[in-house]
Design a protein around this nucleic acid. Structure first.
Lengths: 111, 111
DNA sequence: GATCGTACCCAGAACGTCTAGGTATACACC
DNA sequence: GGTGTATACCTAGACGTTCTGGGTACGATC
């Protein structure tokens, strides 16, 4: 529904998904919901971004998928972080930290 | 020369340029140089990204351009922040702060 | 039995960055 | 005078990711 301010999401979505799954297996819809809740909608993942991202991550071997049943008893595909995914998450978190620190130094600095 | 880690730059480049110019007029090449120096190369702006970005910002009325001479006496196009650009910068800094806080909360959190 | 929320899927558009070329000029050096 | 390096700009096309806008199916609720 709402949005327009999320060109910033570019490049961070994969890490956000991996991190969400670091807490345990989840299905796609739940991942998007959770991210919205935790960040009070500062991060809103559209389904048209979410599912392609999940395929991408699965194709890269960072996630593993399995069909199951959701809490509400609907068919749902549950994703699990692989060992490779866990390693990748670590790297992406580091990259983000370095990058965010750099951007903040510029944008928040005097001048 | 080096790079590969800058898919993250997506969406923040405009703000970084505007902020650099908030300190006063600069030509394109100097903007990229300065960003690299301040961030110890954590942010590297390729020329193929830089110049299109500058045109974009000029076309939007956020920057104003004028030909002049560089410190080393070469022809160079100097960019100045417009009033509209200044306002836009403020908004982009806010957006960044909110977004970065949200991403950090997710990525740095336990779980 | 219509509507709403869950849960998934997809094609194509839109957008921004990068690659990989190119021009021109100033300066240092041999 | 010729060569190389750094400065400073420019561009077309490739590329990757996100978003738009469509769609299916099913359970629950009224």
């Amino acid at each position: 529904m709402a949005h327009h301010r999320t060109k910033l999401l570019h490049g961070t979505l994969d890490a956000l998904i991996l991190k969400t799954l670091h807490q345990g297996p989840r299905h796609g819809y739940a991942i998007a919901r959770w991210l919205g809740e935790v960040t009070k909608d500062a991060i809103q993942v559209e389904e048209g971004s979410l599912y392609p991202a999940l395929y991408r991550l699965e194709r890269k071997g960072l996630l593993q998928a399995e069909w199951g049943r959701s809490e509400l008893d609907r068919r749902a595909k549950f994703y699990t972080l692989t060992k490779k995914g866990r390693a990748n998450l670590e790297k992406e978190v580091e990259d983000w930290a370095r990058f965010a620190e750099a951007v903040s130094r510029v944008l928040m600095g005097e001048g």
